[in-house]
Nucleic acid binder design. Structure first.
Length: 271
DNA sequence: CGAATCTCCTGGAGGC
DNA sequence: TGCCTCCAGGAGATTC
């Protein structure tokens, strides 16, 4: 399931498309999280891709008259293929470029999204209220401590809230809290500035390590070249219920927090 | 208003 | 081997 490192790796894998012009768009299955705008079939051809950026887990593809916003949901991947390569069952969208390369979105569970933001519509509602990027300087201990100061929800839910900080999904939330020795159920406003320092630092390093490792992969993530990442071997707690903690050997606990599996070590992580 | 819950979807795993 | 049930999860929408 794509977390921020996988999205960033996907974006980098697409950079070779910059400067190329769209030849055609094929939409095979228009109902992702929201309907894919059918007008893309007419709008995109003849437009040039100028840049590929990322905000949170959204990939932003800048064309002449607007931005194509792509989200991979939890099972999405983008592959770059020759246009003769036959589509498979869950290959919902193709954007063929004039050199014959195809940007192909596959998303079996269809939690992903493909939307169009016209240049005249700035301040898109999906983007304009998002918190800071976790790897940028705006995400620091002072910011986090202040952002949490009136929050009583569990810290794990807080760091997964995109209005506080973007890009921290379920896996890295558990991993970062373990590394920071903070119990996932701790009230967000109870974190000291010192704990915020540690947590910010561990969120950054966890994401950074995953990025360097080429993105983590569970069974259904592949990057643009079809190769899986390998970060999952390094998990301290995620998916390790009842297995010994890698630090203290006590069995890892699994609880539900905000409808999500949450993994932690009760000895290493303090409330 | 903040927090918790609901919702979309399908593949894979486990039980029999 | 096949069928059934259950589960996973990003994040906006809805409800409390």
């Amino acid at each position: 399931m794509p977390e921020l490192p996988e999205v960033e790796i996907t974006r980098r894998g697409l950079l070779t498309l910059i400067g190329k012009t769209v030849k055609s768009v094929t939409i095979r299955h228009p109902t992702l999280r929201w309907p894919i705008p059918q007008h893309l079939i007419q709008t995109l051809p003849h437009q040039t891709l100028h840049s590929l950026n990322r905000r949170a887990k959204y990939i932003l593809c800048e064309f002449d008259t607007g931005v194509l916003l792509v989200h991979l949901g939890m099972s999405g991947c983008i592959q770059l293929l020759d246009h003769n390569y036959p589509p498979e069952k869950h290959d919902h969208v193709d954007i063929e470029f004039s050199d014959g390369q195809v940007f192909r979105l596959r998303d079996p569970r269809r939690f992903g999204a493909v939307l169009w933001i016209d240049n005249k519509d700035n301040n898109h509602p999906l983007l304009n209220r998002l918190g800071p990027e976790p790897l940028e300087d705006g995400f620091n201990a002072q910011y986090l401590h202040k952002a949490l100061s009136k929050k009583t929800l569990a810290i794990k839910n807080a760091i997964m809230d995109g209005y506080i900080v973007v890009g921290v999904g379920n896996i890295y939330a558990s991993e970062s809290l373990f590394r920071a020795s903070i119990h996932p159920e701790t009230s967000a406003n109870k974190l000291t500035i010192k704990q915020c320092e540690k947590l910010v630092s561990e969120i950054k390093s966890t994401l950074q390590e995953a990025l360097i490792a080429g993105g983590s992969s569970l069974r259904d993530f592949f990057g643009t070249d079809g190769k899986p990442g390998y970060f999952q071997q390094a998990y301290f707690v995620y998916g390790r219920t009842d297995e010994p903690c890698k630090v203290c050997a006590k069995p890892i606990k699994c609880i539900r927090l905000g409808q999500r599996s949450t993994f932690y070590c009760e000895k290493c992580q303090k409330r």
